Simulated assay, not measured.
Amino acid sequence: MENFMNIYTVPVAVALATVSIWVLKGVLYRKLYTMYSAWILNRLTVGLDRAYMRHKKRLFQIVEDYKNRQHGDLKILELGVGAAPNLKYVPDNSEITLLDPNPYLKKHAEENIVEARKRLKSVEWVQGVAADIPSPSNTFDIVCCTLVLCSVVDIKKCLSEIHRVLKPGGMFVFVEHVAAEKNTWKRLVQTFMDPVHYVLYDKCSVIRETETYIRASSLTDIKIERFHANLYYWVTPSIAGTATK
């Protein structure tokens, strides 16, 4: 028995050490990548907000008009908030929940959150994913997202969750970059660049046909405008629009 232990102790110890290092490496990698993702998204915030500002302002004016028709303050959910640049567009006295899976983004959003709290009823940061929104059904008047559906893992489930948490008659507003038309040079370049974006920008896909998914969802009264944003050649195709529960 003693000889048996001597023969197998070292290999077993090496195997356990190898597995432990592999697990720790994975944990460390995920943490470092999550920190990197928060950093790079924050760095991109100003440029992206500038590129889509005109369409954001128009959409949030629609939200303002919705508020006036409702004759009451709004409960809003924003998905994938990043550094929270959209807070400045939100109608006064709203209650807004900011949902993002990356815990390291909160510190980058803090300045915008502090400023928004001066004119909004409440601003709550929640860590979570759009495919499993931690809110009861029929909770929000408005759900909004900008440049988020390109990177969610399960876009069908995400849109289903948006429909679930909206109040009856509630509105979904969105601005997204999307795939170019098929059989074009831009689509070819997008296909080439897609793996790069996936790695560098936290699972972002430039060939996702987001409009198709939205139109196939349970949402109704879908209105979508296609346009080209002032961004890199392969990221310019974009959509902005609204949909209703």
Rank of each mutant, 00 (worst) to 15 (best):
Q190L: 04
M35H: 12
Q61V: 04
A243E: 06
Y33W: 07
V199R: 12
C144V: 05
T139Q: 12
R208D: 11
K88C: 15
F192R: 09
P11V: 10
N230S: 11
K223G: 05
L48K: 03
E64R: 12
G82F: 02
I155F: 02
Q61E: 14
D92N: 06
Y104P: 08
C158H: 07
Y33S: 10
T184M: 01
E64K: 13
Q190C: 03
L200D: 06
D221E: 14
K223Q: 13
E95C: 03
T9C: 10
E110V: 01
G72H: 05
V46F: 03
L147V: 02
F4C: 10
K56G: 09
V196I: 07
E209C: 02
L105V: 06
A131G: 13
P237T: 08
A83H: 02
I207E: 04
D141M: 01
G26K: 08
A116E: 12
V196M: 12
F174G: 04
V90N: 06
V178N: 05
I155N: 00
T242W: 07
P11W: 01
V189G: 01
N42P: 10
T34Q: 04
F4I: 15
L98V: 00
I224Q: 07
K156I: 08
K56C: 10
H177E: 04
V27D: 11
M53T: 12
M171T: 07
T212F: 09
